[in-house]
Simulated scan of single mutants.
Amino acid sequence: MTDNPVRFGRFRPYVCSARGWLHVVMYLALDEDGTAVTVRAPATEYDRGPEAARELVRTESECLLRMDGTYAPDLLDVRTSPAHMRPWIAAALVHRRADDPSSGPAPNLRAFLEELGSSVLEAVFLRIGQDVARAVDRAHGLGLVHGGLGPRAVLVTDRDVRLVGCMAASVDGADNDHGVGFPRSDAYLGPDDGGSSLTPKSDVAAAGAVLLSVLTGRWSDSRTRDGRCAVAASGIAPELADALWRCLDKDPTRRPSAATLAAAFARESARQAVSGAGKGAVRAGTQLEKPEPKRAEPRSAKPKGAGSSVAPTTSGTTARSRGRIRTRTLSTSRAVFGSCRTGWPTTGVSTRRS
């Protein structure tokens, strides 16, 4: 396996991600027409060997193939042979504005909220929550359990969200023993999910935990006294807050399905559409803080239908109620990916991973 790739098949890498999942390196690359794509490849130092690296790529390609560009990037190409070559997977680059390639890579949920500052419009929270739940529900309906949901595994566009980073997913109920190499943050585990086999209820717990973190303003476990107080003070409907807390029930059988969670968000969105509410901020005061995670994010793709829109942030400001909240934009792909480096990192060089 070469340490300095010049090409991945028809794709020529030009930027290496500065924020990567453990054991995975991601690149921005150009196809023969000059279209930007993302390429992900297990690090050459992945200590479980070449065949294990190929299994990671096969798993992610199967997930993207089944998702078919809805709530996930479009699969473009995948290579797992010959044995002496490094396996890789290419997917369409997800743009910040889904239909505008000039808008740059879509931010992950963590970066998106950092741009918004200390407050999030309630309508934006409801759209993101509904889309995350719908994305997870779609995956479950296709026999997939993501197994690594976190803020960096969710890309936010002006149209919907996209789930990424599924090399350690479960397909058709099969155990994926690569999970040990892709550890999940305790903040996104259900009370009894640590070390257990992946199930749809594991994903529901992670989705609920991620969305509760948006309300508490901290990328950490929300099941604390301060976390519960922050959610109660956030202003979201008690019924929706209850649905989110039930995602973290110690008994997985008592957690809602992803479809039920999506329906709870849809009902609240419909209620606010009728009442004209939803212009207030659901999170005030605290900035989202750094967690202790193990993941990062690829940015991929162009949508194939699906989802509700999320207020775009590319203008630099976003309306909130009668005032405005200032946001920060990422104007170039290098702001997200950083510069290519010599050699193959095992983790990328992010100091902030989730």
Results as ranks from 00 to 15, higher is better:
residue 2 T to L: 14
residue 7 R to M: 12
residue 10 R to Q: 12
residue 11 F to P: 04
residue 23 H to I: 00
residue 32 E to K: 02
residue 37 V to N: 14
residue 40 R to E: 07
residue 45 E to A: 15
residue 47 D to F: 02
residue 48 R to I: 08
residue 50 P to Q: 10
residue 50 P to E: 10
residue 53 A to W: 00
residue 54 R to N: 03
residue 58 R to L: 12
residue 60 E to C: 08
residue 64 L to H: 10
residue 65 L to A: 13
residue 66 R to T: 02
residue 69 G to Y: 07
residue 70 T to E: 11
residue 79 R to F: 07
residue 81 S to I: 02
residue 81 S to P: 00
residue 83 A to R: 07
residue 84 H to V: 10
residue 90 A to T: 14
residue 92 A to G: 14
residue 93 L to R: 13
residue 100 D to N: 14
residue 101 P to K: 07
residue 103 S to A: 06
residue 104 G to P: 01
residue 105 P to L: 02
residue 108 N to M: 03
residue 109 L to W: 08
residue 109 L to E: 06
residue 110 R to I: 03
residue 112 F to N: 03
residue 119 S to A: 15
residue 122 E to F: 02
residue 123 A to S: 15
residue 124 V to Q: 10
residue 125 F to D: 06
residue 127 R to L: 00
residue 135 A to S: 15
residue 136 V to C: 07
residue 140 H to I: 09
residue 143 G to H: 04
residue 144 L to K: 03
residue 148 G to N: 13
residue 150 G to R: 12
residue 151 P to T: 05
residue 151 P to K: 03
residue 153 A to D: 11
residue 159 R to F: 01
residue 166 C to N: 04
residue 167 M to P: 01
residue 171 V to S: 00
residue 172 D to V: 01
residue 172 D to M: 12
residue 173 G to Y: 05
residue 174 A to D: 13
residue 176 N to T: 08
residue 176 N to L: 10
residue 180 V to G: 08
residue 184 R to A: 11
residue 185 S to N: 10
residue 186 D to K: 14
residue 187 A to Y: 03
residue 189 L to Q: 14
residue 191 P to C: 05
residue 198 L to C: 05
residue 202 S to Y: 06
residue 205 A to H: 08
residue 208 G to T: 07
residue 209 A to W: 08
residue 210 V to M: 14
residue 215 L to G: 09
residue 216 T to Y: 10
residue 219 W to H: 06
residue 230 A to E: 04
residue 230 A to F: 06
residue 231 V to H: 05
residue 232 A to K: 03
residue 234 S to I: 06
residue 252 P to K: 06
residue 257 S to D: 09
residue 262 A to V: 05
residue 266 A to I: 04
residue 268 E to Y: 02
residue 269 S to L: 14
residue 274 V to E: 15
residue 276 G to F: 08
residue 276 G to S: 10
residue 277 A to Y: 06
residue 286 T to Y: 05
residue 287 Q to P: 02
residue 288 L to D: 02
residue 288 L to M: 13
residue 290 K to C: 01
residue 294 K to L: 07
residue 296 A to Y: 00
residue 297 E to N: 09
residue 302 K to Y: 07
residue 303 P to W: 03
residue 305 G to C: 03
residue 308 S to P: 00
residue 309 S to G: 14
residue 310 V to Q: 08
residue 316 G to C: 07
residue 319 A to W: 05
residue 332 T to H: 13
residue 333 S to K: 11
residue 335 A to L: 09
residue 339 S to V: 12
residue 345 P to C: 04
residue 345 P to I: 00
residue 348 G to M: 01
residue 348 G to C: 11
residue 349 V to A: 13
residue 350 S to E: 11
residue 351 T to I: 12
residue 354 S to H: 15
